[in-house]
Write a protein that binds this DNA or RNA. Structure first.
Lengths: 204, 204
DNA sequence: TGAATATAATAAACAGTGTTTAGTAAATCT
DNA sequence: AGATTTACTAAACACTGTTTATTATATTCA
């Protein structure tokens, strides 16, 4: 009975087709303008078909959110070879901010939007986020152990760093940096200056 | 011809009626569930009537967003009497975070949601935000002048502080602090610890 | 192979959204 | 009192996410 396996494969193919189309539309037009009907039209199926493969729109965007985390995780762990944890922290910060600025829609979905939340809660564990946060936690612990930054609980220190970079990029992505009344280029330069300033402050 | 003035008054009354109803519904049920039809039913008018007083839903939420800024501004400027600028900064931080945690929907509308953005851009100036940010800027300048915090450009310093507190509260409001797998009370305590840690790091 | 069954896909509908248009009733002006 | 402006609304438009009943196809079993 290889038919069952083929069917399973076909089901997965269809899921991938939907996710790929949704991702493409999402990155091109944003969340709101990526409707089930849009996706359906794009893959040349009826809207109702999508509900045979995903229970709702949010589940689709939960998968996209997971894929985005995989990308970010890979980028962050590229700096694993840097032995000095403070230096690694610096690179992690730069990479995080860069990722957010270059993939604002992904970042929004990962850390701002409520769309994937239902699924996260449903799963009782935000594993995608845990992976990235865990890596930050490790780095902070190493920094503290080696006395490279001002002493603090590693959770508190990690939350402080994450909060700062998250705040920095979300103020930009959600267009609140308009308050600076600067050209976009200057704003980005100021963000870099702010990141450096923050990390210098941390140092012992 | 006092009729014209009475009409003008009545127009303003109607605008207030709509805003009051919208605000009430918004704080009770959130943005998405506050529909034009809901507001219309609440004030016992037809949905179309609302469009005689506001050009679209976003304009209504722009007004609510402005009102929220008035509340935050008053809270922040309560600390004007504190002469030591670093101490004042500390109180500003605590007040800001408290405001966000106690009024998450207001905070969301002010600093995260895209709803009021069209109007902000249309007006070419985000005066509501400028007022609060200006106050932070003053305080930072005073801190730097008196050598209370590590030297930096006042804009960079202000952006750093704002980014941190904004990140801290938005990770909480948009439910990303679930990663800590802590009871809500502990998360809030950690947020306080993080704020203190951040402000201590700034000190010379 | 042919009838019965299980699967896949869809058309159409439901209940909602923001917004616009055309038409009516009331208040104001001449 | 008649003409005109103002205030309001019913109904429609073009969407949205989602569900249900139906049909066509593929698979299984006798």
């Amino acid at each position: 009975m290889a038919i069952k396996e083929r069917k399973e494969r076909e089901k997965q193919d269809m899921r991938n087709l939907i996710i790929d189309s949704a991702t493409q539309l999402f990155l091109k037009q944003g969340y709101d303008k990526t409707s089930i009907r849009n996706i359906a039209e794009d893959i040349e199926y009826s809207p109702a078909t999508i509900y045979l493969y995903f229970k709702d729109k949010d589940e689709i965007f939960y998968i996209i959110h997971e894929n985005a985390f995989e990308i970010l995780d890979k980028l962050l762990r590229q700096h694993n070879s840097i032995s000095d944890p403070y230096e690694r922290l610096h690179e992690l910060g730069k990479t995080y901010v860069n990722f957010a600025l270059e993939n604002p829609d992904y970042y929004d979905l990962m850390f701002v939007m409520r769309a994937p939340l239902a699924e996260i809660k449903h799963k009782e564990k935000w594993s995608a986020g845990e992976c990235a946060f865990g890596y930050l936690l490790e780095t902070m612990a190493a920094c503290i152990d080696q006395g490279l930054i001002k002493p603090a609980d590693k959770f508190v220190a990690a939350m402080t760093v994450w909060s700062f970079v998250h705040g920095l990029v979300t103020l930009y992505i959600r267009e609140r940096t308009c308050i600076l009344e600067m050209p976009d280029e200057d704003v980005r330069q100021m963000m870099n200056a702010s990141l450096s300033h923050f990390l210098t402050q941390m140092k012992t």
